[in-house]
Structures are given as C-alpha cells and as structure tokens.
Amino acid sequence: MKHIKKILAAGICLAASLYLTPAMAAYEIDPDYTMKYNDPGKIEQRYRWHGPYEVKSVVLSDGEAKYGNYKYKVWYPVQQAGRERPRPLVITLNGTGGSCDKDEPIFRHLASWGFVVAGNTDAQTATGFSAEWTLDQALAANQDSKSPLYHQIDEKEIGIVGYSQGGAGAYNTLEGKDGDKFKTMVTVSGVTESIGEKLHLPVWIYDPSKVTIPVFMAAGTGILDRKLITPLDEMKENYSKIQSKTAALGRRKDADHLDIQTAADAYITAWLRWQLDDDIYAKRVFTGKAPEILRNPAWDNAEVRNPETTQPKQTEK
C-alpha cells in the first residue's frame, strides 16, 4: 500500500514539474565548471579540483522495466595495481527533470576523489524508488566477477546525495527497505515542507526527526532557494530535528538553485571524504576550534554540530 501511494504521488510530481519550472535541473553541467569558482577557503580550494584518480564508467542497466525503465550508470576510480581496496559508494538522486547524463561532470569529479558514484536518469526521484534500485544493482555488480566493479565497493561505507526533490527522495530512501545501509546523507537545495504543501505533493514531505545518520545540508542564497525551494527557516527547522550528533548546514553566497550543485561541490566532496573515507584534512571544514565553513566568507548561515566542536557557531553575514 505504501508503494502504491508513492507511485500515485510520483504521477502528481510529474504534473507538478510543469508548474515548478524554477526547480528543474534539466540542464547540462559544464565539464569545466571547476574553473568558474574562486574559493576563499583553503580546504575548499583543494576539493574543488579533481582528485588523484583516473575515472571510468559503466552502465549497469538501461530501459529495464523492473528498474523503472531508467538508465543506471556508475563512475568509479581506476585503482593502482597493488594498492586496490574497496571504495565508498555514493548514490545520487536527481532534481526535477535532471539525469545522470546531464550531471556527469560532478559525478566524475566525486569519483576522482576515490568514490564509486552511482546515478540514473530518473527525473522524478522523490519517492526514493530509483535510489533503492540503484543500490541493488551496484551491490549486485560488486559481487559479479564479470563486472569491473567486482569487489570495488565497500558495502559498509555508503552515502546518499539528493538534489532538489532528490533531497526528499533521500529522506524517503532512508525510510525504505535499505535505509539502514546508508552511513551519511547530503541534501543540496533539498525541497522543504512548504513547497510540498503548496503543490499538494505528500511525497515531498518527510520527517527529519527519523534521521540518525550524519547529514550535511547545502543551499544557495539566491532568490529561488531563499524564497521557494529551501527557505532558511525551514532548512534550520529540518536541521534541528535531525537526531544525529553530527550535522552541518550552510548556504553558498551568490549561488541559486540551478548552480548550487557545482557551487557547493567542494564542500560536498569534503563531507563525503570525511564521513566515508576518514579524511582528516576534509573533516577540518566541519570540526575543530575553527571549522572552515564557519569562517568562509563565501558561505552564509553556517552551523556545525559534532562531538569534536565544543562550541558550534553560526555565521550571519
């Protein structure tokens, strides 16, 4: 019954997407997007650029009815002989009208930092179904001796990243059958409660209080994020409800809904490096006496919450 309700809601999502043009992510990310930003944070600068790994990709499936007729694709780091080890897995959820084909440059960037990154062409991800199907296929490939992903994935280190309505999808995925497999979550201009209520989309409404894993919430200060998609007061309300002892939020200045994925990319990479790969340099963005995100003039309304930062601060520039 729960799945039937979600499928009906997905149909409503499709109709609503015609109305919700500002929230659409149906544009191709520039492969050279990293050249666009002049980041003031030193750690931010490091993770803005591509990492040390060459990246390859493989299609897991394309057009199979049991997986919603979407294409599922994975980007993965090419490991050096003699130094192979399983890598963390990141499942991604598109915004309205988006796809892994259009967002490929940011997936390649993340894979270059040592992640196996799995995406799909689902343009209506809020139900979380395509995330579950992506995870199922990636884990199956990890056990398939004929797959280039054979034993390449660390199944204990899995994260999920949701953009726009994909943020709701990430929350819904955590409540699904494989929710306990995820170790961390990132929402990127994730839709908040008011827009789901205005559009009568119950699948866009979720309960942050059920989340117990570490979460990073990123958004922009532009008018679409600020006034429509991710209002600051609702973003903070979600943040306050999350049960995890480790969380962070921040709004990238001069970024709006359509460019927040690239604008926030460096800190999203740093968060995942810390949470899934124990990167002690990346964790300094969010921990210590002076977390970089709190001092970075390119970010507003930043907050951190973790056992290693005894006095979390908030920037109000």
Rank of each mutant, 00 (worst) to 15 (best):
Y67G: 01
D101F: 12
G159N: 01
G68P: 07
W133S: 11
K156T: 13
N94M: 09
A138W: 07
Y150E: 11
V74E: 06
N120W: 02
A81W: 07
G63D: 12
G162H: 01
A141K: 01
N94A: 02
G169Y: 08
G128A: 05
N120G: 01
G97W: 06
K56W: 15
N120I: 04
P148K: 04
A141I: 05
V116Y: 14
I153V: 15
S145G: 12
G169V: 02
D103L: 12
T125D: 11
V161M: 14
H109Q: 15
T134M: 15
K73F: 12
A131N: 08
Y150M: 14
I158Q: 06
N120S: 14
G119W: 00
E104C: 02
R85W: 04
A65K: 14
I153L: 12
F129D: 01
I160W: 10
D144T: 01
N142W: 03
V55K: 03
N94K: 11
N69C: 09
V55N: 05
G97H: 00
A118T: 05
Q124H: 14
A168T: 09
G82S: 08
W75I: 04
G159K: 03
R85V: 09
R108T: 10
T127K: 01
D136V: 10
T134F: 05
S112M: 05
I160Q: 07
L110D: 06
A111L: 08
Y150V: 08
C100R: 05
L149I: 00
P88S: 15
E64F: 08
H109D: 13
G97K: 02
G167D: 02
I160P: 10
S130H: 06
S61C: 14
Q80G: 10
G98P: 11
S99G: 14
E132D: 15
R83C: 09
V90T: 07
D103E: 14
G166N: 03
P88F: 03
